[in-house]
C-alpha cells in the first residue's frame, strides 16, 4: 500500500516527533515519549493519549508498523513500533519541506534586516 505522502503534509507536531523517534530505532510507547522529550529538550511533552491517538493514525496510514511484544522485556504489556519505508519517505518529505521553509525564512529575515547607512 502506497499513499500520496504530500497529501498529508505538513505533519502535525506530534506525528512528526513520533516519526522522528522511530527513525532511529524501534521503540515502545514509553520509549517514544521519552525520546520526544529529549528531541525537544523537554519543551514538547507528548502524553500517552496523544501518542496512541497518533500511532493509531500512523499505523492506519501504514507509516508505522506494530511489531508486537518482545520476549524478555521489563514490562510484557509493551508493544514495539517501527517506522515503515513509506513512513520514512514521508518523514524525509516533511524534513525537506521544513528545510525549504527555514531557508525561505532565513532569506526573508536577512532581507528584512535594516541596512547600514
Amino acid at each position: 500500500m502506497k499513499d500520496d505522502a504530500s497529501n498529508f503534509l505538513p505533519l502535525a507536531p506530534a506525528a512528526l516527533h513520533i516519526l522522528l523517534s522511530l527513525a532511529a530505532e524501534d521503540l515502545h510507547g514509553y520509549g517514544i515519549m521519552q525520546d520526544v522529550a529529549r528531541q525537544s529538550e523537554g519543551k514538547y511533552k507528548l502524553r500517552s493519549g496523544t501518542l496512541y491517538d497518533n500511532l493509531q493514525k500512523l499505523i492506519q496510514r501504514r507509516w508505522v508498523e506494530e511489531l508486537g511484544q518482545r520476549p524478555g522485556d521489563d514490562d510484557p504489556r509493551r508493544r514495539y513500533y517501527r517506522l515503515s519505508s513509506l513512513g520514512r519517505g514521508v518523514l524525509a518529505a516533511e524534513t525537506a519541506r521544513l528545510a525549504t521553509v527555514v531557508r525561505e525564512a532565513r532569506l526573508r529575515l536577512q532581507v528584512a534586516k535594516p541596512r547600514r547607512a
Binding site: 510507547g29 514509553y30 515519549m33 500517552s48 493519549g49 496512541y52 504489556r77 509493551r78 508493544r79
Partner: peptide, 22 residues
C-alpha cells in the same frame, strides 16, 4: 489495542504531577 500499553506507561510514571497530567 492500546489500553494495556497506556496503563503500562501510567504505572511507569511515579511522579504525582506527571500522573495527573496523564
Amino acid at each position: 489495542r492500546f489500553a494495556e500499553e497506556m496503563q503500562s506507561i501510567f504505572d511507569q510514571v511515579t511522579e504525582r504531577s506527571a500522573r495527573v497530567g496523564l
